[in-house]
Amino acid sequence: MTCTIRRAISEDAEEVSSIIVAALRKTNAKDYSEAVIQRVEQSFTPEAVREMMNHRVMFVATQDERIIGTASLDGCVVRTVFVEPGFQGQEIGRRLIAEVEREALARGIALLAVPSSITAEPFYAKLGFRAVRDSYHGEERTIVMERALSTES
């Protein structure tokens, strides 16, 4: 599958929001209650995504000009990694994480953290992240994971 990774722009917010909500509803819903999914969705409205772009370095994966995935870097934390459900399992998430890592290295960041959903924990583990602790927001469990970045090319 050919896709392009680029920096997100404000005009991408609607599509990014739609992809996140679709992934939450289709993929994450098997590990979280409907109430948790609805609460998390509220954090990813188009307006909220646009606001995130002001504070994070956000990337999108595109195929034929259509956004099919997103990931962002917020300081030393990987955030908002979502791939449209129909494109999951096709290395798009891995490519997005690689772009986030390149950005982190360029900023001198040596250790990345990610607050992983239960759903995404195996994905991050395959990329070398290790679980360091659980975090709870009400009934929503996330697994805080970390990975040291190699400065060698």
Results as ranks from 00 to 15, higher is better:
E84R: 07
V144M: 09
C3I: 12
N54T: 13
P85T: 07
E146I: 15
R79K: 11
T45F: 02
E65D: 09
P85Q: 07
Y32N: 14
S18P: 03
Y124M: 14
E47Y: 06
V21F: 06
S10G: 12
L105G: 04
K30M: 15
P46R: 06
S17V: 07
D64C: 02
M145K: 08
H137D: 14
Q90C: 04
L73W: 00
V132Y: 08
G75Q: 07
A23I: 09
H55L: 09
R130T: 15
S150I: 10
R79M: 02
D12L: 06
R50W: 05
R66S: 03
G138R: 14
S135F: 09
V36L: 09
V40Q: 04
V40C: 03
M58W: 01
K30Q: 09
P122L: 12
T2S: 11
I9V: 15
E84G: 00
E99G: 03
T80P: 01
V21T: 15
C3G: 01
L96K: 06
R95Y: 02
T70V: 14
H137K: 14
D31S: 11
E11G: 07
G89T: 03
R94T: 15
E121Q: 12
L111P: 08
D64H: 04
A22D: 06
I118A: 11
L24K: 10
S10M: 09
R79C: 04
T27M: 09
A106K: 11
R79I: 07
R56L: 14
M58S: 13
L111Q: 09
F44A: 00
I92R: 01
P85E: 04
P122S: 13
E41S: 08
F87V: 08
R66W: 01
A22C: 10
S72G: 14
T119G: 02
